[in-house]
């Protein structure tokens, strides 16, 4: 599917005008993006290490999931908003960047995994699930989100 028109539109948008004109604001938004990634990574780590019985083992799983779900959602919103702002400054360049597409594929997979697999599966409690299913979910989640962060860093190197 040809998606270039979206990037061309973004490149000429008001947002792009602002992001290209104000380098200081761009740098501040990068900070928001990095801190949001850290928040997302930290909460994913706590949630998945709990599922693997490696962290906070005395705290019930639903309690950990409730808190981490809230902060993961906040982090996903700020990561997306700050990411779109940054993308607007270099939209056409990003369209031709393979690391960017790897990150977007990972990000889409991460969202699908969270909203379609992990959270619906855990809604009924871990006791009703096969322990290996729970472990597999945790390892898959960690792998996806750390890959998203790593490929994101490689955008700048490509």
């Amino acid at each position: 599917m040809e998606l270039l028109f979206i990037f061309e539109w973004l490149d000429t948008s008001t947002l792009a005008g602002i992001s290209k004109a104000y380098g200081g604001v761009f740098a501040m938004v990068q900070t928001v993006h990095l801190v949001s990634i850290a928040l997302l990574g930290g909460m994913v780590l706590v949630s998945d290490l709990r599922l693997l019985n490696l962290l906070l083992t005395s705290v019930p799983v639903p309690q950990v999931m409730d808190t981490t779900r809230k902060w993961i959602t906040i982090a996903l919103i700020t990561v997306t908003l700050s990411g779109v702002y940054q993308a607007s400054a270099v939209a056409i360049k990003l369209y031709h960047n393979s690391s960017f597409w790897a990150k977007m594929a990972g990000f889409a997979m991460g969202l699908l995994f969270l909203y379609v697999v992990k959270w619906p599966l855990l809604r009924h409690g871990v006791d009703s699930l096969n322990p290996w299913t729970v472990r597999l979910v945790a390892v898959a989640s960690l792998t996806i989100w750390f890959s998203v962060a790593a490929t994101g860093r490689w955008i700048g190197f490509s």
Partner: peptide, 13 residues
């Protein structure tokens, strides 16, 4: 950057 994510993420928690 990845270890910043681990460190800062857990510090934020």
């Amino acid at each position: 950057v990845l270890t910043l994510m681990v460190f800062l993420g857990l510090l934020l928690a």
